[in-house]
């Protein structure tokens, strides 16, 4: 597949959710022509997933695992929506968050994804990298940490207008969502979209999430973090280099 076809596979013209697909990794496909590591859809109990169910899924798993998980959900009628928003490090350079495996998985999964016949209204499965804020700083590294913002997703009102009143968060365990994602889930909840959480490999028991309104302190700290540590201004996303050739 050529690069544009890979983008088409993940963001088909007719899907309701394609406008939200983050393009930055697809813009770097040509710099990563290597085949993805031999990996396949995770062996997971997907008994909690029902085809055609009106639930918006948010997959928050590390690295390429989320992509493979998204592909498995596509086989069950969901439309995976990559929201990876970090710039890959240039070839040969180390990154704070290594997103090249995600790029490789997007490439590797595209043909199979394209073979699924999903309707435009197929429920979304938004894919995030749970490593997005992590990593250990080093001056020689490409700093591409990122934060997920509510504006990276459709609003709760839009979800409800399309018949989605439930959201399901898939993460490593059934604990609380990451602080940045919490902002989105709280806004969804305020709009009437109720969230549950399920462990990615935990046998499928769902736990309802009561996302409390972020306390002013945590909201202020989150904003402060966004403004001082990992800030974003107008249109959103993250990545900056600590040394290396661009052009």
């Amino acid at each position: 597949m050529i690069d544009d076809e890979i983008y088409d596979a993940w963001a088909p013209r007719d899907s309701w959710w394609s406008p939200w697909v983050k393009p930055v990794l697809f813009a770097h496909l040509r710099q990563f022509a290597e085949p993805a590591p031999a990996e396949d859809a995770p062996e997971v109990d997907f008994s909690w997933v029902h085809s055609g169910e009106c639930v918006a899924i948010v997959v928050d798993l590390p690295g390429a695992l989320g992509v493979w998980y998204g592909l498995a959900l596509a086989a069950r009628g969901f439309r995976p929506v990559p929201l990876y928003n970090a710039i890959p490090a240039p070839a040969g350079e180390a990154a704070r968050v290594d997103v090249w495996p995600i790029v490789g998985a997007l490439r590797a999964c595209a043909p199979r994804l394209q073979s699924f016949v999903l309707p435009p209204s197929a429920p979304p499965a938004f894919l995030l990298d749970s490593n997005r804020r992590g990593g250990v700083a080093s001056l020689a590294q490409f700093d591409n940490r990122s934060i997920s913002f509510p504006t990276d997703f459709p609003s709760g009102n839009l979800l409800r207008s399309r018949g989605f009143e439930r959201a399901l968060l898939v993460q490593r365990d059934v604990g609380q969502p990451e602080a940045d994602l919490r902002q989105t889930l709280w806004r969804w909840q305020a709009a009437g979209v109720v969230s549950s959480v399920v462990a990615a490999e935990g046998g499928g028991s769902q736990v309802t999430l009561a996302v409390s309104k972020p306390r002013w302190t945590s909201l202020a700290l989150w904003r402060l973090g966004a403004l001082l540590g990992l800030p974003r201004g107008a249109l959103g996303g993250f990545g900056g280099r600590l040394g290396g050739a661009v052009g």
Partner: peptide, 25 residues
Amino acid sequence: PGYMEDAEVVFHLAAKLRSLGRASI
């Protein structure tokens, strides 16, 4: 680091500089 919209700008300008034969880092 951390500002995607700023990264967009510098990567865009790097491409313009490249078309003028100037390398950038």
